[in-house]
């Protein structure tokens, strides 16, 4: 299993072959289509991430010591962004998720999505994923 850092490097490599934004966006849209989709029964309002102009549903569960994320969005570009985040953060330990940074987004040429005021809410998605991770961390400490 690759670490968060390794997956981020892999994504940077993958995006480095594209010359222009259109190709990068097309790849991101393609990644969106391969995303592990959220079970429709979790597509409820309480799974919606606030701060997005499009709808983003995010679900998490702990399997063993790993957090598994699934998601969906009604906008295709947003779905591509969530897919990238899920590829990086899903199937990792809560500790690794909490500690991870998101500078790789800049390096794959999607810097404009990093601004906290951006309406797509990439920052909100990361925050929500980290919140889940923190909660699982606390839960496991209690059990230990």
């Amino acid at each position: 299993m690759s670490s968060i850092k390794e997956i981020q490097e892999e994504l940077i490599d993958e995006f480095s072959i594209f010359d222009d934004w259109m190709e990068r966006y097309e790849h991101m849209i393609a990644l969106g289509k391969t995303m592990p989709l959220i079970d429709p029964k979790y597509k409820t309002d309480d799974k919606l991430i606030k701060g997005c102009q499009s709808k983003v549903w995010l679900h998490s569960e702990l399997k063993g010591d790993k957090v598994i994320f699934t998601a969906d969005s009604d906008a295709i570009i947003t779905k591509g962004i969530v897919a990238i985040l899920i590829r990086v953060f899903s199937n990792q330990t809560p500790e690794a998720i909490v500690a991870a940074d998101t500078q790789f987004i800049d390096e794959i040429g999607l810097k404009e999505h990093l601004s906290p005021t951006r309406a797509n809410g990439l920052v909100s998605m990361v925050k929500q994923m980290k919140l889940y991770a923190v909660a699982y961390q606390a839960q496991r400490k209690q059990q230990a």
């Binding site: 966006y25 499009s54 906008a75 295709i76 570009i77 947003t78 309406a119």
Partner: peptide
Amino acid sequence: NIHPYDIGTILDKLGIAVRTG
């Protein structure tokens, strides 16, 4: 079948400012 947000994002990449939402 296309979310307005997606169109607005692509238009922005083309230098075209519209409002979405």
